[in-house]
Simulated assay, not measured.
Amino acid sequence: MITERAPAKINLALHVRQRRPDGYHDIETLFAFAADGDVVTVEGAARDRFAIVGPFAAGLDAEADNLVTRAARAFVEAFGIVAAHAITLDKRLPIASGIGGGSADAAATLRALARLHAVPLDDARLYRIAAALGADVPACLDGRTTLGTGKGDALVAIDGLAGTPLLLVNPGVAVSTAAVFRTWDGVDRGGIGEGDLLARARAGRNDLEPPALALAPVIGAVRAVLDAAPGVLLSRMSGSGATCFALFDEAGACAAAAAEARARGWWTLQTFLT
């Protein structure tokens, strides 16, 4: 059995530049990853099976088409694999929450299958499969801090902030990525600047936060709590929402903010950047 983590993805900054002819948007984003998230397990089997367990399993249908099963089908086709697989997704992250859950799950599935079948993780075919599955999947396959450009799949590694205490907070609402992009005002406010990673993130923004806030006003309440937390280095909404994140100067401050968020009935994940 092969077990792969599917860590939560956060966008330290997310600048939307323009809509592309292919329906995607040109963006500039600073991808970073948490130490925790979903978990995917893969093993050989007599027939293909897929099961979903975990706290957020009820929100997904194991019989429906999804990114995990699409990733598995694409892998066996690309590499000529004839074996069947039993795949289990332990769904620990909220669904439709802006932290790359589905993309991370697909990427973890590709990594697990590659390990099971002795395929090098830097095989270019894995990245071609990832890019075909979705804009965030290549970054999740890479699983490290990167600057993403184009539709988010042109990646350049960046150093900095590993080990920084991280708090994720979701108010319990799902936000449609497509709806958020449809609500975006279409204004190009410029790209991500230079400097060290924290400076670039602080000087940046998330262009999807205003349209997400219009769809889910509770995001503003989450941001207010995180912005006011002692020891916070940066607070922002991730992706298309509704999950927000905060980076802290030390773990105790992160724990105190997590307790404040939980007291309001919100989902929290206290972790750190890798």
Results as ranks from 00 to 15, higher is better:
94 P>W: 09
125 R>V: 08
125 R>C: 04
84 A>D: 10
107 A>I: 06
35 A>I: 06
139 A>R: 08
55 P>E: 09
135 A>S: 15
57 A>Y: 03
43 E>F: 10
31 F>M: 05
53 V>S: 14
87 I>D: 02
122 D>T: 00
103 S>L: 05
51 A>V: 09
37 G>V: 05
92 R>N: 14
88 T>W: 06
41 T>Q: 11
152 G>A: 11
122 D>V: 00
135 A>L: 00
124 A>D: 12
89 L>Q: 09
80 G>N: 13
132 A>D: 15
112 A>P: 08
76 V>D: 07
106 A>N: 06
33 F>G: 08
77 E>F: 01
64 A>F: 12
88 T>R: 14
134 G>K: 01
39 V>H: 09
88 T>K: 03
71 A>E: 04
111 R>T: 10
131 A>L: 04
95 I>E: 02
73 R>L: 07
76 V>P: 04
158 I>K: 14
47 R>Y: 05
41 T>V: 02
95 I>L: 14
73 R>H: 12
145 T>K: 06
110 L>F: 05
34 A>Y: 08
147 L>I: 13
32 A>H: 11
105 D>P: 00
67 L>F: 02
67 L>V: 01
132 A>N: 14
117 H>M: 04
130 A>Y: 10
53 V>N: 10
53 V>E: 11
147 L>W: 15
109 T>F: 01
150 G>I: 06
82 V>W: 04
40 V>M: 06
58 A>W: 10
58 A>C: 12
85 H>F: 08
113 L>R: 00
83 A>G: 00
154 A>I: 13
29 T>W: 07
98 G>T: 02
79 F>S: 00
155 L>T: 10
140 C>R: 13
150 G>Y: 09
46 A>T: 08
68 V>I: 10
73 R>K: 11
35 A>N: 11
39 V>M: 07
